[in-house]
Amino acid sequence: MTAAPLSPAPTPWSAWGERLVAAGNGELMSVVNGTITSKPGWRSARTRKPSRATGGAMEQTAEPADLTTAIPSPPSATPAARPSRRRDAPRNRRPVQAPQLIEAARLADQLQAAGFTERDIARIIDRDPSLVSQFYTRHKGAAFVPALTRVLQAVQTAGITDTTELAAIAAPHITRRTTSSGTRARVRTRSVLITPAGTGTGRAGAQAIASGSTRLRALIAEAARQRLRLAFTVRLAKTAYVHPSGSRTDSPGIRRDVIQRADHTEERSYGSSATGGFDATDFARRTDRAAGDVTVAIHQWLVETGRIHPDARIIHLEIRTWRPRS
C-alpha cells in the first residue's frame, strides 16, 4: 500500500517554529526546518475510514484538530531565579576589639568618674580642651601622665576639687618640649587674622561653642591689646529672644540685620561700625571672669541687658573687630 502524501494540518504554530502535520494513518509528524520527526502516541483528532478515492489511505477531516493539550509549552525566555543565599548562615568575622587606652586616657577617665569634665582637666594641665579629647583619638598625652597622677592622688586622698588648686599641683610636673639644642619648642597654634587696619573675624559653631569658644578668646584679647572695637552676631531659637524681630529696643533695631532661618532660629547682630560697637577691653574682662569661655561671657551680657532669656542657648557666634576712627 502506498502511503498518502503528507498534508499540513490546520494546527497552530508553536512558539519555537515547530509545525505539526498529520500523516495518512492519523499520526502527527513534527516539521522543524524541513526535518520530519514522528510523534508517537500523537494522533489527529478525527480520521475517516479508507475510501476508494484515496486508494485505501486514511483521509483526514477538514475540521481542525484541537492540539492545545498535545503541544508542550515552549521554554520560558526568562531564566529561573537562583535560590537566595542564606543570610542567617554564620560568617567568619573577626570580633571587633575595643581600642586600647593609653595611661593618660585612663587617668582622664578616672578624673571624669570623680566629677570633672574634659574642660576641667584641660584647665588643670593648662591646655586646650581639644588636647584632652586627643588622649582617646590620637593617643596623645604621655607627657601629662606624671601631672595627672599627682592630681588624681590629690583628689582621692585629700578630696581636693578646686581646679585652681589642682592646677598648682600639676604645674611643677608639666614641662614643655625642647629642641635638640635645649630651647623651648614652638607649638603650632591657630593664627588669628587681624589686619593692620584692625579688622578681624572669628566664628564658632556648635562644636566650638561646646568647648567654650576658646579660639575666639585670643581674638578678643588681641583686640583689647590694640584697643579695637568689636561687634558680634549670635544665632538662637526665635523663642529665646525677649524682644521681637526688628524691635527698636533690641540692637540693632533695623530689619536688615535680623536673619530668620528655616530651622526656627534667628541671627541678630549687636554693634556695628556705624553705631560705634563695643569696647573690646570690656569683653576681654568678661571673658577672663568666665574662665576664658567667650560664649558664657556673651550670654551673660545678653541676659544682663534684657535681650535673651536666661535659659537660652547660643548656637552660633561670630565676632568682628575694627579700628575706630580718631
Score class of each variant (00 low, 15 high):
residue 291 A to I: 06
residue 250 D to N: 03
residue 249 T to S: 11
residue 253 G to I: 05
residue 280 A to Y: 01
residue 260 Q to D: 14
residue 231 A to R: 08
residue 278 F to V: 01
residue 244 P to C: 03
residue 233 T to E: 09
residue 230 L to F: 07
residue 284 A to H: 11
residue 285 R to M: 07
residue 286 R to I: 03
residue 292 G to T: 08
residue 271 G to S: 09
residue 286 R to K: 12
residue 291 A to D: 14
residue 257 D to I: 05
residue 255 R to G: 08
residue 257 D to Q: 10
residue 271 G to W: 07
residue 281 T to W: 05
residue 236 L to I: 05
residue 259 I to L: 13
residue 251 S to A: 09
residue 255 R to V: 12
residue 241 Y to P: 06
residue 254 I to C: 06
residue 280 A to W: 03
residue 256 R to Y: 01
residue 253 G to L: 06
residue 261 R to Q: 13
residue 236 L to V: 05
residue 239 T to N: 14
residue 237 A to Y: 03
residue 289 R to D: 15
residue 269 S to V: 10
residue 256 R to E: 13
residue 240 A to G: 09
residue 248 R to G: 09
residue 272 S to Y: 06
residue 247 S to Q: 05
residue 282 D to S: 10
residue 260 Q to S: 14
residue 248 R to L: 13
residue 264 H to D: 15
residue 290 A to I: 08
residue 237 A to K: 10
residue 285 R to T: 14
residue 254 I to T: 14
residue 234 V to E: 02
residue 267 E to V: 10
residue 232 F to C: 02
residue 254 I to E: 10
residue 278 F to R: 02
residue 259 I to N: 13
residue 286 R to A: 12
residue 271 G to N: 07
residue 230 L to C: 01
residue 250 D to W: 06
residue 260 Q to Y: 07
residue 265 T to A: 09
residue 239 T to Y: 12
residue 230 L to R: 04
residue 234 V to D: 04
residue 236 L to A: 01
residue 250 D to Q: 05
residue 229 R to V: 02
residue 227 R to K: 10
residue 261 R to M: 12
residue 230 L to K: 00
residue 252 P to F: 06
residue 229 R to S: 05
residue 286 R to C: 06
residue 238 K to W: 12
residue 279 D to R: 04
residue 247 S to V: 01
residue 250 D to M: 06
residue 268 R to P: 11
residue 264 H to E: 14
residue 280 A to R: 01
residue 231 A to V: 01
residue 243 H to Q: 10
residue 279 D to P: 05
residue 260 Q to C: 08
residue 267 E to K: 14
residue 256 R to I: 07
residue 249 T to K: 08
residue 279 D to E: 07
residue 288 D to V: 11
residue 250 D to V: 03
residue 290 A to Q: 15
residue 257 D to W: 15
residue 248 R to W: 10
residue 272 S to E: 01
residue 243 H to L: 08
residue 264 H to L: 04
residue 243 H to Y: 11
residue 272 S to G: 11
residue 286 R to P: 04
residue 266 E to I: 08
residue 281 T to S: 10
residue 278 F to A: 09
residue 268 R to S: 00
residue 261 R to K: 07
residue 258 V to P: 04
residue 290 A to D: 13
residue 227 R to Y: 00
residue 268 R to W: 04
